[in-house]
Structure formats: C-alpha cells, structure tokens
C-alpha cells in the first residue's frame, strides 16, 4: 500500500470519530477536500504528504471536542422533567430496596459490615442487586429512551452491574474460593473506592453498546463513570455527616445505622438518577449516533 493511500484511508477512518449528525452532513466533503490537499502536496514529496496528515491529526482533538459539545447541546435546552423524574424514581427505588436490605442485615450483630458478612448474605445480596439494577434501571432507561428494547436494557443494566461488582468485590471472590490473601489494606480501600466508578463504567459501556454500538458505549461509559463516582461521594458524605456530626446528639445504635444506609443510598440513587436522566435526555435530543431516531 502506498503512503498516499494509507494516509487517505487513515483519514477516512478518523472521520468516523465525529458525531454521526456531523458525519452525515460533512464527512464526504471533508474526505474529498483531504484527498485534494494530499494530491496537491504529493508531487514526489512524501514529507509534505505526511505533514498534511499530521496537520489534520493535530486539529482533530479540538474539532472533536467542539463538535461533540455542540451535538450534546451546549446545555442551552431545557431538560424534560419527566425524564429526570423517571430515572430518579428508578434508581432511587433501586437503592431504597438495597439500603433497607443492607441496613437491616448489617445492623444485626452477625452482619458487621467490615469482615464478617456471611456467604449466604453475600450471595443473596449479589443476586438481588443484579436483579434490581436490571429491572428498575433497565425499565427507567427504556422509558426515557423509547427507541430502546426494554429486555435488552434490563439485561445490559443487570449484567453490567454484576460483572463490575464482581470485579471490585473481593467478598464475592471468596465465595467462589478465589484466594484473596494478596489483598492488603491498601488494595481493600482501593476496591471500595473503585466499586461505584466501575459499576458506572460497565453499566454505561454495556447499555450504550447494546443501544447504539461502540461509540455510544464509550461516551456512556465515561459519563456514567463520572455520575456513579459523584453518587458514591454523595453517599460517602452523607455517612460522614450522619455518623460524625450528629453522633453526640442522637442515640447511636442499630436503627441509626439503618437510617444511615437509607439516607446515603437514597442520595446515591438521586444523584445517579438525575444525572443519568440528563445524560439520556441530551443523547435523545441530538443525532449523536447513527439512526438515533426518537420514536
């Protein structure tokens, strides 16, 4: 393959990185202009041809950021309140159920939430969380995005959650008999902090990929990682406030621990639900991905 053909086909591949709406409108012309530019420089001077390509590559990140931020909306449009309400209810009810189960169990003497959780509880907790994420998350997403298939979204949410939780949950490894001897305190802390971003990453990746392909998966995964991280830190902050600031004033006991779980998880669910609602609302309004038709 000659250098010229290689460069032209590389440029054509790079054009696929642009938002689909932009691609439909301008990619063909851009490709043609680039071919013209290469042909005008390709008169025996390979370096000029390479430089022409490098020039395009250098301006590409800036162009992509500008076009995607344009496509996502410049945040000028009003968000549909209904979308926010639906995803918030979906994620908050999900977290509410989880918090009640966790709060109840962990506030029992046998359920000390540090190291003594039983295998049975872990298994039930794991399956329950997967099902809840699948059912409630999947339904909320499929209502907000009418062009999606509900069953696919439920599976995507559930599987995304289960895989990500397994990756970051050393307790689950022990259930399967996988050695966790190498996990010291630093690793343990890392896994705790990484769990929610990982949940967000894999749920976003799989939901986006199932819905509109790899590019949507990539964008959803980045956005969702940020969203889940914010949710996690909101939860963390609520724990900190409830356990430290009010510690001396309120009777500190099992029921208080349960309140902590419920408040923290509801905040987590609220943040995740509202931000996912905004994300999907934006995605739905703009032709970011191919055949992104709003039904």
């Amino acid at each position: 393959m000659s250098l010229k053909i290689f460069i032209i086909s590389s440029y054509a591949a790079l054009l696929k990185l642009y938002p689909t709406g932009f691609q439909h409108e301008y990619a063909e012309e851009m490709n043609r202009v680039f071919i013209d530019l290469v042909e005008s420089t390709d008169k025996g001077n390979r370096w000029k041809t390479v430089r022409c390509f490098l020039n395009e590559c250098l301006c590409l990140p800036g162009c992509l950021i500008r076009e995607y931020s344009d496509a996502i909306g410049g945040m000028k449009m009003k968000t549909t309140k209904q979308n926010l309400v639906i995803t918030s209810i979906g994620f908050m009810s999900l977290f509410l159920i989880l918090s009640i189960v966790n709060g109840y169990y962990r506030s029992q003497p046998a359920g000390n939430w540090t190291h003594t959780t039983t295998t049975l509880f872990l298994v039930i907790d794991f399956i329950l969380q997967g099902i809840l994420y699948g059912v409630l998350g999947g339904i909320a997403i499929s209502i907000v995005l009418p062009s999606t298939n509900r069953k696919q979204m439920m599976l995507a949410c559930g599987i995304g959650y289960l895989i990500s939780s397994f990756i970051t949950g050393e307790g689950y490894w022990e259930v399967l008999g996988i050695s966790t001897k190498w996990i010291n305190q630093n690793w343990e802390s890392f896994l705790v902090y990484a769990s929610s971003p990982m949940n967000g990453f894999l749920i976003g990746l799989i939901v986006g990929w199932v819905w509109k392909g790899w590019k949507a998966g990539l964008i959803f995964s980045i956005a969702s990682t940020i969203i889940f991280t914010l949710g996690f830190w909101t939860n963390y902050l609520s724990w900190y406030v409830l356990t430290n600031v009010f510690r001396d004033n309120i009777l500190f006991g099992r029921s208080w621990l349960m309140v902590n779980w419920i408040v923290g998880y509801l905040l987590f669910g609220g943040v995740v639900g509202i931000l996912w609602g905004i994300l999907m609302d934006r995605i739905q309004r703009y032709p970011l991905f191919s055949s992104n038709v709003v039904n």
């Binding site: 851009m30 043609r32 202009v33 076009e67």
Partner: peptide
C-alpha cells in the same frame, strides 16, 4: 471546501493553513 482553504492561504499570505476539520466545523 478545497478552494476556500487555498484562497484563505493565499489572502493570508500563507500564514493561515486551515485543516479540513477546522474548515468544516
């Protein structure tokens, strides 16, 4: 597009060389 790039290069005395991405944005 191509003739815009060339014209801009000409009227700017060769100082402004637009990439296709910049032009179409």
């Amino acid at each position: 597009g191509y003739s815009i790039i060339k014209e801009v290069e000409k009227i700017s005395g060769g100082r402004v060389k637009m990439a296709a991405g910049t032009l179409y944005g």
